[in-house]
Design a binder for these strands. Structure first.
Lengths: 359, 359
DNA sequence: TTGTTGTGTGAGACCGGTCTCTTTGATAAT
DNA sequence: ATTATCAAAGAGACCGGTCTCACACAACAA
C-alpha cells in the first residue's frame, strides 16, 4: 500500500497483462468478461489485477463498444417535487437494469433544453428521456431519433413524434376536477399555470405549446362551457413561472371585485404559493375560495383544511418511461408505445360551495 | 436533409477533414478550438462541419484529455427535498462553470455508496461530491483521493479526511433548538432521526456514524443536561428510515404514558410523518406537544400552526460545495477548506409550554 | 498417418478524438 | 543571396479498451 507513484497514471489492461505474463488480448478477455480463457490463466490475471488494484476505464470501454450505460434525462426543474419524484422512479428503474442516469435541468426553456440534449448526445448516452418544454420546436428531438438513439417522452406527448411516451390523461382528469368545482356550484373558476405565452394573456389554445397543459386547459374549458359558464377563458392565468411571479398572478387574481370562487392550480409549487396568498389576504378555504391542484405533494395533506388534489402516479410515470426506454435499448423492435397511466382525485377539504358574496 | 445513411455511423473529424480537403490534424484544431489555423481554412472546415452536421464525440475527447467535464454526486436520497434542493445548487454552480452532473442515490446504504463511487470513478468523472453515509468505512473515499480526483463532502464532515467540506454547525444549531424547547419548560424532549444503529436503540454517541446527526444529538443532549434533565438519551429515537418506520417510531413514542411533550425531528421528511401521527392521535400542536424540525421544507410554513424550523441554507450548501470542488478542478492548490455555513431558526407556531398532564 | 475440428492465446487494427513532432513556405535579418 | 525565424499545415503516435483474425496445438475420426 505504498504510494510511490508520483504521477497517478492508472492501471491499464496492458499493465495487468504484463504482470500476469499474458498478452494484452487475453488479459482484456478476462477483465472484460468476454471470449474464452482457460481457468488457470483467468486466475493468474485476476490475481494480477487485484494486486495492482486495476479499475477498468469505462470511458475507453464505452468508446469501443459504443455503449455508455448512461441514460440522459432532461426535466424542467428537479427542485419541483413532481420531477424529483419522477427522476427517482427513473433512477430506480435504471439502476435495476444496470444503467446510470445523467441529469440536466432545462428550466422549461427551449434553448437550454436543446443545449442539454446536444450535450448528452455528445456524451454518447445510450438513450434519452425528455419532458419537452415545447411542441413547436422539436428539431433537437428529431435529431436524437435520427442519431439512432432511442428517445422517450415523460409527462408530455408530442403528436408529431412517434416515440415511447408515458403521460396521464390530462384532459380527462382536468375535466373531472373542473366538474367537481362546477358541481359544487362554482361559476367563476380560475386555472393557473406556469406556462407562459406571448403577451402573457391567455387568448386561445393555440398559444399553449406544452401538451399536458394544453390538454388540461382544454378539458377545463370544455367542462366550464358544458356547465354554461360564460367566457371561462377569462380566468385562465399564465406565467406563474416562479414563486414571485405566482404571487403576483395570484394577488391580481384575488384582488379584483370579480375574483374567482375557485382555483385549479396546474402544479403543486404554484398551488403552495396560491395557498399562501389566500391565507395572507385573510380568505378562508373553502368558505371564500375553493382550491384543487395537480400533484399530491407532501404539504397538501397537512394543511388546514387539507387540499383536494389530482393524484398523478408520478413515481410510476418515471419508472414506466425508464422501463420503456430500457426495453428499447435492449433491442425490442415493437412499435412506439403511448402509455397513459390512470390518475385519481383525492377529495379532501378544500372544495366547498361558492361564497354568496354577490347575492 | 435526406436520410440515405442506413447505418447511422456518426460524422468524425476525419470525415470533416476529407470534405474540407485538409488533414485530420487541421480539422481537429478547428473543431477542437485549439492550436493555430488560418482564417481561410477555419472557414472551410466550419462550412464542411456544418454541411455534414458534425457532432464531436465527447467520449473520445474525454479519453485523450483525461477530463470528462462531469462531476459525480452521491447523495442519500434525491426524493428528500433537502437533497433535491442541494443538488439543484450543485447543478447550477456546475453548469455555470461548464460542468455536468451525474447523480447517484446511495439510499444511505454504505455498500450502495461504495458501488456508486466505484462506478463514477470508472466513468472518469473529474471530481466527486459525496454525502458520506458513514464515517466508519471510508476506504472508498480514500481511493478517490488516491486516484488523484478531487473529492468534496456535503453536509457531513469526516475528521479523518482532509478534503473540502461544507456543512452547517449542526451541534450549535441543535443546541439552540433544544434550548428553545427547554426554555419553554419542556423536560421530556425527544429526538427522532433516520439514522439507525445496531439494536435500533440509542445507547451512546459511539453508535452514530453519521457526523451531522452525531453532532446534533450531542448538542441536544448537552443542552438537556445543562437544563437539569435526567437521562435525556432515553428519548433519542433511531431508525426512522422510511415513512412507515417513522410512523411506527412516532406511534410508539406518543402512545406510552410517559410520552414526551416536545419533539425535535432530524429532517423534514420525518417531521411530516410525525406531524401526521400527532394529528391522527388527536393531539394538538403546540398545546399537547411541541415540534421543531431541521430543514425549512415547503409544508412547514403552511400547516396550522406553522412549524418552527431550523433553516439550513440548503441551496447554498450545494452551491458552495460545488464551487469549492470546481476551484480545485481548476488547479487551485490551497489547502482543503472546511466551510461552515450560518444557520438560523425560524420561530413559528409549533412551540409552546408543555401540557400539564402530570400535574 | 493424414485430415478435421475445436480450443486457447497472441498480434494488431480500431474507436474518435488530442497532441507532439516534422515539414513547408513565406518573411525578416544579415 | 543566404540564413534565421515563424506561422500554418500535415503525419502519425497515443489514450485504454474491444474485437477480428491468424495461429499453435490437442483431440478425434477416417
Amino acid at each position: 500500500m505504498k504510494k510511490n507513484a508520483p504521477k497517478t497514471r492508472s492501471i491499464t489492461v496492458s499493465d495487468v497483462a504484463r504482470a500476469a505474463n499474458v498478452s494484452k488480448a487475453t488479459a482484456a478477455r478476462v477483465l472484460g468478461g468476454y471470449g474464452v480463457v482457460s481457468d488457470m490463466i483467468r486466475a493468474d490475471v485476476m490475481a494480477a489485477a487485484k494486486a495492482l488494484d486495476y479499475r477498468p476505464n469505462e470511458l475507453a470501454r464505452s468508446m469501443t463498444t459504443g455503449r455508455s450505460g448512461i441514460i440522459g434525462v432532461v426535466v424542467g426543474d428537479i427542485e419541483n417535487p413532481f420531477f424529483s419524484l419522477a427522476v427517482r422512479g427513473i433512477s430506480d428503474a435504471a439502476r435495476a437494469a444496470g444503467f446510470n442516469v445523467i441529469l440536466a435541468n432545462s428550466g422549461e426553456r427551449i434553448e437550454v433544453e436543446k443545449a442539454a440534449v446536444r450535450l448528452l448526445i455528445g456524451k454518447r448516452v445510450d438513450g434519452l428521456i425528455v419532458t419537452p418544454s415545447e411542441s413547436r420546436d422539436i428539431s433537437h428531438l428529431r435529431d436524437i431519433h435520427r442519431s439512432g438513439r432511442p428517445l422517450a417522452l415523460l409527462d408530455r406527448a408530442l403528436p408529431d413524434l412517434d416515440v415511447d411516451t408515458v403521460t396521464v390523461d390530462d384532459r380527462g382528469i382536468a375535466m373531472r376536477a373542473t366538474r367537481i368545482l362546477a358541481d359544487a356550484g362554482h361559476r367563476n373558476i380560475a386555472y393557473v399555470t406556469a406556462v407562459d405565452a406571448e403577451g402573457h394573456e391567455y387568448r386561445d389554445l393555440g398559444q399553449i405549446y406544452t401538451s399536458s397543459v394544453r390538454e388540461r386547459i382544454d378539458g377545463f374549458l370544455t367542462v366550464c362551457r358544458d356547465a354554461g359558464i360564460d367566457r371561462p377563458e377569462k380566468y385562465v392565468r399564465l406565467g406563474a413561472t416562479s414563486p414571485a411571479e405566482t404571487r403576483r398572478v395570484a394577488d391580481k387574481l384575488l384582488s379584483g371585485p370579480d375574483r374567482p370562487t375557485a382555483i385549479l392550480a396546474s402544479d403543486s409549487v404554484i398551488a403552495l404559493e396560491i395557498f399562501r396568498v389566500i391565507r395572507q389576504r385573510g380568505l378562508r378555504i373553502p368558505e371564500d375560495i375553493s382550491l384543487i391542484t395537480f400533484h399530491d405533494a407532501d404539504w397538501t395533506s397537512v394543511t388546514t383544511p387539507p387540499i383536494t388534489v389530482i393524484d398523478q402516479p408520478v413515481y410510476a410515470l418515471g419508472k414506466s418511461v425508464a422501463e420503456l426506454l430500457i426495453r428499447r435499448l435492449k433491442g425490442d423492435p415493437r412499435p412506439a408505445e403511448r402509455l397513459i397511466l390512470p390518475t385519481s382525485i383525492v377529495e379532501r377539504g378544500s372544495v366547498g360551495p361558492p361564497s354568496n358574496r354577490e347575492l
